[in-house]
């Protein structure tokens, strides 16, 4: 019995098995945001339609939902009504949409067609999106009243998802 072979071989087998086994439980595309638990990055962007500048500081005091989207994003179409509806139902929560790499005309047309119940900001070169670590659209950040990001959700949301994440911001 060759001890070296046995020990080395079994060690490699167990290590590989352990790593791959744990790997089976997770989704490799789900990237966790390092900003969760940290203060949200500041921004100051112009709202489409009104032209007013809205900055992060103005959101303090109430829980906030910042939703990054774009008119060229197909899943955003599904999500939009959910956001509009929830924004109406929950006046105690600030809803803000941020659109990047898009034009005001397209955004205005989209909102005219599908409704809007909260400000939509234009992030022309995506700098705010990058500061927030946005990879794709739609991605949504949930802030508590002190401006700390408590949750991030990537992908189109349903009402359940929105409300369960919002619950964390309300605490």
């Amino acid at each position: 019995m060759n001890r070296t072979v046995l020990v080395v071989g079994v060690a490699i087998t167990l290590a590989l098995f352990a790593i791959l086994f744990v790997g089976l439980g997770r989704d490799p595309a789900a990237i966790r945001s390092p900003l969760v638990g940290k203060p949200a990055p500041p921004f100051a962007l112009k709202a489409v339609g009104t032209g007013q500048t809205i900055d992060l500081a103005s959101l303090r005091g109430k829980p906030a939902i910042i939703n990054f989207w774009a008119t060229w994003c197909v899943p955003c179409y599904q999500e939009h009504p959910v956001l509009v509806e929830n924004a109406r139902m929950l006046p105690g929560v600030q809803f803000v949409g941020v659109v990047f790499n898009d034009t005001e005309d397209k955004i205005n047309a989209f909102l005219r067609e599908r409704g809007s119940s909260y400000p939509t900001l234009l992030d022309e070169q995506g700098k705010t999106a990058i500061a927030y670590g946005v990879g794709g659209v739609p991605e949504t950040y949930f802030l508590n009243r002190d401006g700390v990001i408590v949750a991030k959700f990537a992908g189109p949301m349903s009402t359940e998802i929105l409300q369960s994440n919002l619950a964390k911001a309300m605490q």
Binding site: I31, A70, W72, F100, Q125, G126, I130
Partner: peptide, 19 residues
């Protein structure tokens, strides 16, 4: 961040171009 393993230099995706 969106592509599977590509670098920002090589990727044509919107976020990569912004980055």
């Amino acid at each position: 961040p969106v592509c599977q393993g590509m670098s920002v230099a090589d990727s044509p995706s919107t976020v990569a171009l912004d980055m």
